[in-house]
Amino acid sequence: MRMLTFAKRTAKEILRDPLNLAFGLGFPLVLLVLLTAIQASIPIPLFEIQHLTPGVTVFGLAFMSLFSATLIAKDRGTSLLQRLYTTPLTPADFIFGYTLPIIPIALAQGVICYVAAIVLKLPVTVNIVYAILGLIPISLLYVAFGLLCGSVLTDKQVGGICGALLTNLSAWLSGIWFDLELVGGTFKKIAYALPFVHAVEMERAILAGRFADVLPHVAWVLCYAVVLLALAVLFFLRQMEKQ
């Protein structure tokens, strides 16, 4: 009950920020429409709607890290958290209260992206539902990034690290905007050592119904998510002690 009260507050703070809505929802939709228009004029297989949509939905999740990290860092910067630390809220209430609301928001973002993609002629199949559900482990990964950054950085630093670095990493090292095979070499090795490209390939495989290809990618994503979540919880508890 206490955790749900706190989680409700997290969701309200995130959803009421017009910038969050603009970037979290507007930006992925703009990308989807723009790149589909480019594809219509200059056909590029990578920008075909069935390839593009999974990438854009994953890319959109990077903003979830930004929203969550900004809120946590801002709370840390004010006395609100100090006040709440003197209430019966437990560390678990804080961690779940900050992280759980992000998952339905992330899923809602995915649903909106897929609805837009259907309008842009994505064939309607049951795999769309599975692809949206596949966003859950990926959103865990981005939630962990958010909790980690929010626990160790100030709100200004969060803008730089989550807003610029993470979104760029998610863009460049994910194979959404260009084929990693074209670059190859160390760049490709680094990309495949990180979780972003696996998240995108997992979503592409689900949407295409290639379910046998999903497992190795989901394993990468979940391993990163678990390690990052453990680190995030550790750093959150540390900053709680410091407060």
Binding site: K12, E13, S79, L80, Q82, R83, T86, P88
Partner: peptide, 16 residues
Amino acid sequence: KSCIAVSPQDTAIAPG
């Protein structure tokens, strides 16, 4: 914690 309340030095509210 169940019997105290704190009003910190800075205003401690949820701005949104």
